[in-house]
Write a protein that binds this DNA or RNA. Structure first.
Length: 570
RNA sequence: CGGGGCGUGGCUCAGCCUGGUAGAGCGCCUGGUUCGGGACCAGGAGGCCGGAGGUUCGAAUCCUCUCGCCCCGACCA
């Protein structure tokens, strides 16, 4: 294509509202334009990149035998009511009514619709396994769209669903997806991590997330360089960093101390001159078990934070919330800043394993402005021990003791073993080999297409703009004649353009009547991986080939250039 | 939904406090000179100052309401 005919509205100045790199650059490079909060139009360049990403996805999905569908985005309420997610999705789902006042929604995912197709059509185990997928617009009424294309209200998702007769079948489908996802992200040319994750609202047992490390991300991943261990912060396990001060191991009885005004861990620590690692943090929460709500006391080492996910799975409740100050006063007779396990009212007490084996710690006295010293778990109170804490910097890997780091990441893909959640709630069964009705076991697997694009931009950019991986760049090569009005340069540029095109290279000819500096800057901004400068060196029979990523320039003979580039792009 | 910020030519912003004929740079158009890292000269087009109401002789500017966007938090497959 000839640049002078294209719409590539690059901006010299940085758009005021854009803060994260991918947002700023996708706007500046003319890939996208905003339409509303969390709603974007994809212009020529973005569409080109997105199409390439989707092509890679389709090829790899086909390779594992997945079949492409295209489901309705406009869904009747009934199918969501069956699974219980009409309520469950809350305000994040766009809802609307038709002219007859019937409830509809814009789908944010398609477990329900896929399951409804499967239950109507799948009759026998002989039809399994099936993997069905689609690439489709998803809608989510995000409370706060942000960071350009990172968190939006309308986006493309590749979502696939597997149907198997038994757990072994699901394992195989899941593994196929895991490998396909690895190949997809590798082919897209982006650095990614696979991390163990919590399955959250999707339900089900196992799940892994595919992550790109970027400060713009909203997730935190615990990563061990030495062992390769990586897990979502919510789920990650660790060996806690040792306490800052050794415990006094003598047998002592709890002893009340006056701590006026000291309520937070920090204040108590300062007031008593005792490190936070020798304090017990007491958290009162109201756990929701569905039928009843009960208070639970959770204990953490002073420097640790509770992991919501771990708490939910340890305690076995559906949800929980912090107890209100009034509830706490009613139960403990003291304010939140002075709570502790000794003399606490009767309720389940869970202590994080970092407190196990500790001696003579400081905890609240359940009396305003008083704490207790010499509190020893297991002697002065008896908790159930469990891993409840969130990993913090300084923790080490459980097996090896190797250091762990916490990395900010963006999720680009997620694979789940759903289990029977939807086949049960929606009644999806087939006849097995014994002629008996048996529930189908499912998996679901997603890739955020825009996020792959954003991830690439986040990972590969510099002061000059985007350095797109060749596989998903809008063009692979740009041919830049320094002066298109010079007949010799023009002829050479057109000839090279035609030759590259003939070889199947995705090439752009910058035929604009612009000064060379403008053309160079634009090419670098939009991220084309290779640029061939057709200029003064033509007289010596060579072109200069610049690699965007490394900024290296190689002189290649006029007749060899096309082959040289083709080889580099292979 | 709470907190903060911002809406003025296509873009980045000034002007507002202290009301009195709407500005700059970039971009765009025309002509000319240029042509290896976002050129230069000359001329030109383009804005009911987000919207509504109010105060005033007079409002971009002051007041009230409203809409939108961005950021932080809550929230989040």
């Amino acid at each position: 294509m000839y640049w002078s005919h294209l719409f590539i509205p690059t901006l010299r100045e940085v758009p005021a509202d854009a803060e994260v790199a991918s947002h700023r650059l996708l706007l500046r490079a003319g890939y996208v334009r905003p339409l509303g909060a969390g709603i974007y139009n994809y212009l020529f360049l973005a569409q080109r990149s997105m199409t390439k990403i989707m092509r890679i996805i389709r090829e790899e999905m086909e390779a594992i035998g997945a079949q492409e569908f295209h489901l309705a985005a406009l869904n009747p309420a009934e199918v969501w009511q069956e699974s219980g997610r009409w309520e469950g999705m809350g305000q994040n789902m766009f809802r609307l009514k038709d002219r007859f006042n019937r409830d509809l929604c814009l789908a944010m995912t398609h477990e329900e619709v896929m399951t409804s197709i499967a239950r109507g059509e799948l009759r026998s185990y002989k039809q399994l396994p099936q993997i069905w997928y689609q690439i489709q617009t998803k809608f989510r009424d995000e409370p706060r769209p942000k960071s350009g294309l990172l968190r939006v209200r309308q986006f493309f998702m590749k979502d696939s669903y597997s149907f198997d007769v038994d757990a072994a079948g699901l394992d195989a489908s899941y593994e196929k997806h895991r490998q396909a996802y690895c190949r997809i992200f590798e082919r897209c040319g982006i650095a990614y991590m696979v991390v163990d994750a919590d399955s959250g609202a999707m339900g089900g047992s196992a799940s892994q997330e595919f992550m790109v490390a970027t400060e713009a991300g909203e997730d935190h991943v615990v990563h061990c360089k030495a062992t390769g261990y990586s897990a979502n912060l919510e789920k990650a396990v660790s060996r806690p960093a040792p306490a800052s001060a050794a415990d006094d191991m003598t047998a002592l009885e709890p002893d009340e101390i006056h701590t006026p005004g000291a309520k937070t861990i920090d204040e108590v620590s300062k007031f008593l001159g005792v490190p936070a690692t020798s304090l017990i943090k007491s958290v009162v929460v109201i756990a929701d078990f569905g039928k009843q709500q009960k208070p639970v006391l959770a204990l953490m080492r002073g420097d640790h934070q509770m992991s919501e996910t771990k708490f939910l799975s340890v305690v076995g409740c559906k949800e929980y919330r912090a107890a209100t100050p009034e509830e706490i006063r009613g139960l403990f007779g003291a304010d939140p800043g002075s709570l502790g396990p000794v003399g606490a009212p009767k309720m389940p007490i869970y202590a994080d394993t970092a407190l196990e084996g500790r001696h003579n710690l400081v905890a609240g006295a359940n009396k305003d402005d008083y704490h207790l010293k010499n509190v020893t778990p297991g002697e002065d109170f008896t908790p159930k021990y469990a891993d409840l804490r969130q990993v913090v910097a300084g923790d080490t890997e459980v097996e090896t003791g190797a250091p762990l780091e916490i990395v900010k990441t963006m999720e680009i893909g997620h694979i789940f073993k759903l289990g029977y959640k939807y086949s049960e709630s929606m009644g999806l069964q087939v006849l097995n080999a014994d002629g008996k009705e048996t529930k189908v076991i499912m998996g679901s697997y997603g890739i955020g297409v825009e996020r792959v694009l954003c991830g690439a931009v986040e990972l590969y950019n510099d002061a000059d703009g985007i350095s797109m991986p060749a596989a998903i760049a809008p063009f692979e090569v740009v041919v830049t004649p320094v002066n298109f009005t010079d007949e010799a340069l023009k002829a050479a540029a057109i000839a090279l353009y035609a030759e590259l095109k003939g070889m199947g290279v995705d090439v752009l000819l910058d035929d604009r009547d612009e000064r060379p500096g403008v053309k160079f800057k634009d090419a670098e901004l939009i991220g084309i991986p290779w640029r061939v400068t057709v200029g003064k060196k033509l007289a010596q029979g060579v072109f200069e080939v610049s690699e965007r990523r490394t900024k290296t320039v190689t002189e290649v003979g006029v007749s060899e250039v096309a082959g040289w580039l083709k080889a580099k792009l292979a």
